[in-house]
């Protein structure tokens, strides 16, 4: 069995809302091996996005351990987490969230500004990432000139341009039609299986389970069920699940 890239042990997250405590996650434990395509599923308010934020180092747990790529994230400062994210995590959002005043190429170049690469090298890598997602010819276009599916592919290029270990996708197909959604899911699957990236995706789309290796089903902040997805069944034996 491959080494787990992600290991959550007894993780809880409690938010303070006025005088009340909101338990977004309660005692969740799971592992995800490197190179897997995993889905976090469940109804609204089940804690999927909270879990995603913890995995990506955007948020910190109230209790338990979050270990990603061998690093315990609990104790890192805000700035240390930002540095860690820039090296190890690629993020994809539901609404693409490209910078409208930058071209597709410049959007993809953005995370590389945080590296020591010179401009020529940054642009070369950004072009390569755009080629990977099939948008090399649209590099000079502004986001407003691209379709929803194309914008999401630019966002994926932005997520992979730093060659991260982990790709986090929050409802990446939520704003797309079925054809574009399939293209995005196929792309994420290829990143996982061919480039050995670990992809963790939050989704409401029941069809998405057919594309992933493993599904974690959450309800009311509790991990209720773990099962192999369509891609996972084809890649037996299972490579992730509760520890």
């Amino acid at each position: 069995m491959p080494e787990p890239l992600i290991a959550l042990r007894d993780v809880s997250r409690v938010y303070r809302r006025g005088a009340d405590d909101v338990h977004a996650l309660e005692h969740v434990s799971l592992t995800i091996a490197g190179g897997l395509f995993a889905a976090l599923m469940g109804p609204s308010g089940s804690g999927k996005s909270t879990l995603l934020n913890l995995l990506s180092g955007i948020d910190r747990p109230s209790g338990g351990d979050v270990v990603v790529a061998g690093k315990r994230l609990n104790d890192l400062s805000e700035d240390a987490l930002a540095r860690w994210r820039s090296r190890h995590v690629g993020l994809i959002f539901q609404f693409y969230n490209l910078i409208p005043v930058l071209s597709a190429l410049e959007n993809v170049e953005l995370p590389l500004l945080l590296t020591a690469l010179d401009r020529r090298e940054r642009l070369a890598r950004a072009r390569l990432a755009l080629d990977v997602v099939g948008l090399g010819a649209r590099a000079a276009h502004a986001p407003a000139e691209l379709s929803g599916g194309e914008q999401q592919r630019v966002a994926i290029a932005r997520a992979i341009v730093t060659d991260p270990d982990l790709i986090i996708a929050d409802e990446p197909t939520g704003d797309l039609d079925a054809r574009n959604a399939d293209q995005i899911l196929r792309l994420l699957l290829e990143l996982s299986h061919e480039l050995q990236k670990t992809v963790v995706m939050v989704t409401h789309d029941p069809r998405a389970s057919e594309w992933v290796d493993i599904v974690f089903h959450l309800e009311k902040g509790v991990l209720k069920e773990t099962y192999a997805g369509g891609a996972g069944k084809a890649r037996a034996p299972a490579t992730g699940g509760p520890p």
Binding site: D79, A82, R85, R87, L91, I99, L110, P111
Partner: peptide
């Protein structure tokens, strides 16, 4: 988004 993809506070 910039913060999320790794841009520090500084």
């Amino acid at each position: 988004v910039l913060r999320a993809i790794g841009f520090g506070r500084g």
